[in-house]
Computed example of a mutant assay.
Amino acid sequence: MIDPVYVDENSKQKTADFQRLVQRDEVDMVVGYISSGSCKAIAPEAEALEVLTVFFDCGTPQIFEEIVTEPHYTFRTGAHATMDNVAAALYLQQAGVETDSVAGINQNYAFGQDSWRDFSASIAQVYPDSEVATEQFPKIYAGQYGAEISALLTHAPDVIHSSFWGGDMEAFIIQGAGRGVFERSSVVLTTGETAMHRLGAQMPEGTIIGARGPHGELAPESELNTWFRAAYFDRFGTLPTYPSYKMAQALLALKSASDLAGSVDRDALIEALTGLEWEGPSGMVSMALANGHQAIQDTAYGTYRYNSDTNQATLVDVIRFDAECVNPPVGVNSIDWINGGFEGANCE
């Protein structure tokens, strides 16, 4: 029997909350964290307290490349954000999008900074003559983006990249669309899938949409995915978006590890999770990086279309990328791999 203990991640005392879970509540494992800032704080603490901790999302590649370089108790069951941004650049290339100049508007913390770093570096490889028009880094949860939108309109880049997520992303879409940003530039939203059905007709046509992996509308057809979408809709009255897919992916990883180990003992689960391959609603996942503690998987991007006849949000011109094409090889840091021309990438 599983006895869950819930803690709101939106706390100013993330480390203290984690310590209470382990030391007071005596939990056997911790699963969670969507924010890169949270994972940066929690990863060293998980190793110090020797508690099995599974990050289900948090995109920054820093976690195992810089923060905890020899993890034992910490795992991430979703791919990091380098995949999102390499794939975004490749999508632009394969879709034939004009990319003489690019700009970024990203939140000023680890996820936004790393996302822009990886995207702009990937663009430099894919489009070596492309120029960066402007880089905008508003504070996370700022909500109002008038000055940044003015800068984007002034520079008029061919492509605008944003890793905004949640309310910040939706606010930027509504404010930017009202001022013509999406008409003047091709806009890439690496997490845009979460807003598709919420915004509907308010999401500008032609926006390039990602889902931090092959999740949501980008998930491959499978019996498991069909079941997951139906069960989720029946319970919540809405379709699952990528955070729900990634949490399901994390829980299924633990179930697969438990089945493999024949045990829920901490050390047995750690051994089974290390290097694990399993199937989630988004397809196959492999703990291929960081000595078997960091997942990789395929990904995809598509272009937004709203069907006014059926009032449905859809994606067209979907392009899929194999995991080995858009994730760094074993033992190579993300930015070094990108700057080295994606050496070792398998994009067949």
Results as ranks from 00 to 15, higher is better:
residue 31 V to M: 05
residue 49 L to M: 14
residue 22 V to F: 06
residue 48 A to V: 07
residue 24 R to H: 09
residue 16 A to H: 08
residue 14 K to W: 02
residue 25 D to Y: 09
residue 36 S to H: 07
residue 15 T to A: 06
residue 42 I to H: 06
residue 32 G to M: 05
residue 22 V to K: 04
residue 21 L to P: 08
residue 39 C to L: 14
residue 26 E to L: 02
residue 45 E to N: 09
residue 44 P to Y: 10
residue 38 S to A: 14
residue 14 K to R: 15
residue 22 V to L: 07
residue 12 K to F: 07
residue 40 K to F: 06
residue 22 V to A: 09
residue 28 D to S: 01
residue 31 V to E: 05
residue 45 E to G: 06
residue 29 M to L: 13
residue 16 A to Y: 07
residue 40 K to H: 07
residue 10 N to D: 09
residue 25 D to W: 03
residue 31 V to G: 02
residue 41 A to F: 03
residue 32 G to F: 03
residue 26 E to F: 00
residue 47 E to R: 10
residue 24 R to N: 12
residue 32 G to Y: 04
residue 23 Q to M: 13
residue 24 R to K: 14
residue 22 V to R: 05
residue 48 A to C: 08
residue 25 D to F: 04
residue 15 T to D: 02
residue 26 E to H: 12
residue 12 K to R: 12
residue 39 C to E: 11
residue 41 A to M: 13
residue 35 S to F: 09
residue 11 S to F: 00
residue 40 K to T: 12
residue 23 Q to I: 12
residue 14 K to N: 06
residue 52 L to Y: 06
residue 38 S to L: 04
residue 16 A to S: 15
residue 50 E to Y: 06
residue 18 F to C: 03
residue 43 A to T: 14
residue 40 K to E: 15
residue 38 S to E: 03
residue 46 A to N: 10
residue 20 R to S: 14
residue 31 V to P: 00
residue 31 V to C: 06
residue 47 E to V: 10
residue 29 M to G: 00
residue 12 K to W: 04
residue 51 V to I: 15
residue 47 E to N: 13
residue 42 I to T: 06
residue 46 A to T: 07
residue 45 E to M: 15
residue 25 D to Q: 12
residue 45 E to F: 05
residue 20 R to G: 02
residue 49 L to I: 06
residue 26 E to R: 11
residue 47 E to S: 11
residue 52 L to K: 07
residue 37 G to A: 10
residue 40 K to P: 00
residue 14 K to P: 02
residue 31 V to Q: 01
residue 12 K to Q: 13
residue 31 V to L: 06
residue 40 K to G: 10
residue 35 S to D: 10
residue 45 E to Y: 08
